[in-house]
Design a protein around this nucleic acid. Sequence first.
DNA 1: GGGGAGAGATGCCGC
DNA 2: GCGGCATTTCTCCCC
Lengths: 257, 257
Amino acid sequence: MRSHVEPDKDNSKNILKRALQRNELITVYCECEVNYEGRAYSKLERGERVIIIKPDKTLLVHKPTGRNPVNWMKEGASIKFDSNNDSLFINAESINPRERMIIKVSKVHLLHSCELSDAEEVSIMGSEADMARMIYEKPYLINPDFKPVSLEEQTKYGYIDVMGHDGEGTLIIIECKRDKAGLNAVQQLRRYVERIKTAKGTDKVIGYIAAPGMTKNSEQMLKDWGFKFAQVEPPMKNVIDKSRQKKLKDYFLNCKK
Amino acid sequence: MRSHVEPDKDNSKNILKRALQRNELITVYCECEVNYEGRAYSKLERGERVIIIKPDKTLLVHKPTGRNPVNWMKEGASIKFDSNNDSLFINAESINPRERMIIKVSKVHLLHSCELSDAEEVSIMGSEADMARMIYEKPYLINPDFKPVSLEEQTKYGYIDVMGHDGEGTLIIIECKRDKAGLNAVQQLRRYVERIKTAKGTDKVIGYIAAPGMTKNSEQMLKDWGFKFAQVEPPMKNVIDKSRQKKLKDYFLNCKK
DNA sequence: GGGGAGAGATGCCGC
DNA sequence: GCGGCATTTCTCCCC
């Protein structure tokens, strides 16, 4: 067999090199196999996938299903293209953590690249931090006597969502969860309460879980440790910033086909 | 202003509808804004992005940076396309959890769709489960006297990676972490040990963290609770399946430009 | 850069 | 479906 470079793969390689240099976002529909070596090993046999290379050198390999890439390299990977008789290679490496990916592309169905300009960042409402702020502003959601003092405080005893007291010398520590609280949430709370008790040399500390609900087991654990539960919904289900939310509501109504 | 349908957007809409019906994987390079309402609220102002719609009705909106989509709908979303004078709309809804996304596309740069056939699943080596199996097979990695009995056991006291005894009536519980163990790992271990102590009515239980390393704080916590640490690397850094790994090594060597 | 914790986490498995 | 938990988690933020 004569040694020669298949024009197709060679052409793809050159297009990709140019696109990478120009920091364009690249999409490749192709048949490929993928090997990854780094934080783990992985092997993906031949199949059809979409590969995306972003301007920041994030590399994604997407199967036809699922939200997450089946293989990926994080931002800042060193990406190189190569080709031989019948394959196009996409090689990506990064240090710290030391990892490496090799994509062997056997067929290129489509190759596209284009500059993307996007200055906007997404804004999200309804996070746990929003919940903590809401509780700080509306302490009666926990308890009529609750007087919040600090918010999202990073103490050396841990990151405490909301902390305060009951006006009669008992400290109150609140752990917020935007979803149903599980065992982990109670453990966190337990750790904070224990540390505060030790640090302040007192037993007058009450721990609260503030969440829309709790799992059965975690409720039991809560009782076992003498903590309390306050049913609180994440703020976007009510209103945290009326004007903003109104605007969003209107937007959704107007767009609704 | 005369009411009319811009051919471009209308055309895009029709192409998208057909592609969706055919279960093709769709890619749209476009200028768009995105609103999401469901588990939270989010708003993303106008900018250039890549939108992917997968055959399983996963919808991804990718910015030019980062590994994760800035907005998404999970598998099985109900997706509809619409257009008016100057915009193309991609609307996605799902029940359980009830959520909704509206993408207003102001410019379509590229629209592509194509069938993807991919029967292969990725295989991964070096997971925590692999680590647990390795320890089960090579108990001396923990302790010369360790006699493992159960592996990845889902008891009502929790999911215990490896459990066994020292041959002298003391139970040994091992929590594996493939990366550096943190406070959470120690808490997990603590929970398992406490539950086993209560269930068996004995104090003769030793807890181990098996991991490549531990954080300072978690090391302190480990000492405080009388647990122990065994330095163990995840198996892919050594060898779990020599033949398989050899093959992979060869592969990487051969591919290495 | 390490450490701790949230995330619209996702995905897997077991009950 | 819920629940507990790992993930090549990712990402942010603070020290």
